[in-house]
Design a protein around this nucleic acid. Structure first.
Lengths: 133, 133
DNA sequence: CTGAATCCACCAAGATACTG
DNA sequence: CAGTATCTTGGTGGATTCAG
């Protein structure tokens, strides 16, 4: 079982590396974060704009998501002391770099989601996997 | 607010794309899935091997994670009708392709996690963000 | 307009014990 | 060895209300 014959070049993934990925996933893997990042990748937005753009998110979740992103330095919050108050949210440089791996994930998604859904459907149908010659 | 002047080339991310990413994240974004994938990227493994390799996972969570991966066609479960029973788990072709975007995420993680943790620390310290010129 | 606060439902996940 | 069953708990997320 030596790992020297593995044909996949990307198979350098080991325990510590998985922890790193899992760590990031713990922050962007929730229900709304990637949505907010995606919307904000178009440019700065105000609170209510985000609330409408994400569509389905509650105020609470939007606030929590934004706070989490700001906390991790992925988001910048700018308050204009006007009346009524105005707050702009925009991705930081760090936040913008995150779009790259997210795109990678997106490309995998559009290409393989059909296969995943088909597999899921087959699995639900009592696993008729007897497609072997 | 036209999106024609956006300077970021990766900013093609729109609503539907975010949903695709969020959809994948809903399946691999949990606590253990990427761990299991990472371990299995080294080659096939048996149940107890996985249980030891992932380290910290309960039997229940391991079983559920494996079942989820198998359901989505990312994992193949092979049962050897011996005594005692032996079950091998290995990533499918589809599952192996998932390693690519995962690597992309990993590379981002190792490069930017320090910045994230620093930002998080600063945020906790009453946000001394006064680092402007 | 931009949140904060509160309450509540649901589910992920851990612990433990049991089975084939 | 490879799971399943049951119970319990903490956290996530939704709805609603209140405030600056």
């Amino acid at each position: 079982m030596s790992d020297t014959h593995i044909s996949v070049r990307q198979a350098e993934t080991s325990h510590s590396e998985c922890r790193a990925v899992a760590d990031i996933l713990a922050r962007i893997g929730d229900k709304w974060t990637v949505m907010v990042i995606g919307v904000l990748s178009h440019g700065p937005m105000r609170y209510n704009q985000l609330h409408r753009a994400v569509e389905g998110i509650s105020q609470r979740m939007l606030t929590l998501t934004l706070k989490g992103l700001e906390q991790d330095g992925l988001l910048k919050r700018t308050v204009y002391p006007t009346v009524p108050p105005r707050v702009d949210y925009q991705l930081t440089e760090l936040g913008l770099t995150l779009i790259v791996p997210l795109q990678s994930l997106y490309e995998w998604a559009v290409e393989n989601r059909p296969a995943m859904q088909a597999a899921r459907k087959k699995f639900a149908q009592n696993k008729p996997e007897t497609g072997l010659s």
